[in-house]
Nucleic acid binder design. Sequence first.
DNA 1: CGGCGCTTGTGAATGATTTCACAAACTAAC
DNA 2: GTTAGTTTGTGAAATCATTCACAAGCGCCG
Lengths: 207, 207
Amino acid sequence: MKHIAESTVRRLSLYLRFLEDYRRQGLETISSGDLASLGGTTSAQVRKDLSFFGSFGTRGLGYSVSALSKRIREILGLEREWRVIIVGAGKIGAALAQYEGFGYRGFKIVGVYDVDQARIGQSLDGVIVKDQQELDGDLKSLKADIVLIAVPPEAAQPLVDRVTKAGIRGVLNFAPAPLHAPAGVTLRSVDMALELEILSYALAAKA
Amino acid sequence: MKHIAESTVRRLSLYLRFLEDYRRQGLETISSGDLASLGGTTSAQVRKDLSFFGSFGTRGLGYSVSALSKRIREILGLEREWRVIIVGAGKIGAALAQYEGFGYRGFKIVGVYDVDQARIGQSLDGVIVKDQQELDGDLKSLKADIVLIAVPPEAAQPLVDRVTKAGIRGVLNFAPAPLHAPAGVTLRSVDMALELEILSYALAAKA
DNA sequence: CGGCGCTTGTGAATGATTTCACAAACTAAC
DNA sequence: GTTAGTTTGTGAAATCATTCACAAGCGCCG
Ligand SMILES: NC(=O)c1ccc[n+]([C@@H]2O[C@H](COP(=O)([O-])OP(=O)(O)OC[C@H]3O[C@@H](n4cnc5c(N)ncnc54)[C@H](O)[C@@H]3O)[C@@H](O)[C@H]2O)c1
Ligand SMILES: NC(=O)c1ccc[n+]([C@@H]2O[C@H](COP(=O)([O-])OP(=O)(O)OC[C@H]3O[C@@H](n4cnc5c(N)ncnc54)[C@H](O)[C@@H]3O)[C@@H](O)[C@H]2O)c1
């Protein structure tokens, strides 16, 4: 398969949301134009995105909501369950652990870890916070696929090294630190302060 | 000024972090190669990014850490303070309200709002949660520049309409909903479930 | 003070992504 | 069954972003 741009994958994920809204409304077909106006893009963009993976539509009609949902789910790897571990049960880690938006798409929180004795033992939405010393063993025994990093920035790189050594191939980081992972590991970062700075740039540029 | 790509702005913001690390270490100059290896890009990319705004370096030597920091701060609009209001004092809203990473860069939380009587009156790191009925008036009296949306998805679009009507021109949204804002308003969304789905795609594509 | 070595700044080239534009394929209506 | 009206799928064109490659500028050393 040819390399697919991240922007395309991001949009596919959005299209899936819109498809689910349509399904909830009982609609059976959707056109590239509909998907485009919901997603703030163009119909040509939608069709091009889908065309990388095949042709799923019916000319004159559009796309079957259920068939396209299913296909996008397959493309994104969402037909399976992904087992997720959160490290750092502080403010953001706790919020993530209790976030319903993950479970809904097949991301299951199977463990939460911290160093702080005061936090260990706490229950976060059914998951008990465990001591980070148990992390290395649990990564394997719990068959974790993905680790979310919610520890202070200086603890983030050692943690990446640790979990990748244990075989983890997907990491989503929330600490504002420049991280590096070995080849074969996908590491993404969400940086909220950075998002605000981009907003700041846009606002400052206007004035 | 020519239009600057978001990817460039995002990198500038990263460079600023690295410059601050260098300053903390007492280093006075930094080369495009240094910035590049910290940021996982190339030295040509760094120089090109900076060249959109002028030429700040010294050939043979590199960039003055303090002068370049200052210049990037100006470019990003970070010499001033931005007044931020958070709407939704739930799990993520509370975490954001208490996040130190914002204040550090001149983003000051001046108010937090909710509908839930149980949450109103709570103190989050010094800021008292107020009733959302007071929001419209406070947006002006508190001179807010930016609103962070941390309410359930269905409440997000009405909120965008409301705050933009009150004159807000910058919105950072955390709800997984497709939002639209009038022209002149910069609206960005952070969507964590989407980030996990992109990760899912990458992991699934490998296997 | 002259030359060496390093690093910048930037056009030109390449590569990636988006948009355009239209033939082909289908539905629905009559 | 024919036709009018849609909407897809996709090459080609246009735009946007990154990388290349190198002349020019500057510090430093002798
Ligand atoms: N609070 C937010 O809204 C927010 C937003 C964006 C990013 N972040 C980032 O997320 C990270 C956590 O932020 P927070 O606000 O939740 O801070 P926090 O201090 O509330 O939580 C950090 C937690 O990590 C734990 N920890 C530290 N080292 C650890 C280790 N080696 N192993 C396991 N656990 C460890 C601490 O005990 C603490 O409970 C920081 O890097 C922060 O910059 C936070
Ligand atoms: N928890 C997370 O980690 C997380 C992560 C990503 C995104 N989100 C998104 O952020 C939003 C909030 O999530 P949460 O987990 O904090 O949920 P939550 O239920 O804990 O918080 C939502 C809060 O918003 C308040 N609210 C509802 N309508 C309001 C209105 N019109 N005005 C003011 N306040 C209002 C509620 O009273 C509640 O306190 C949701 O859209 C969610 O999808 C949450």
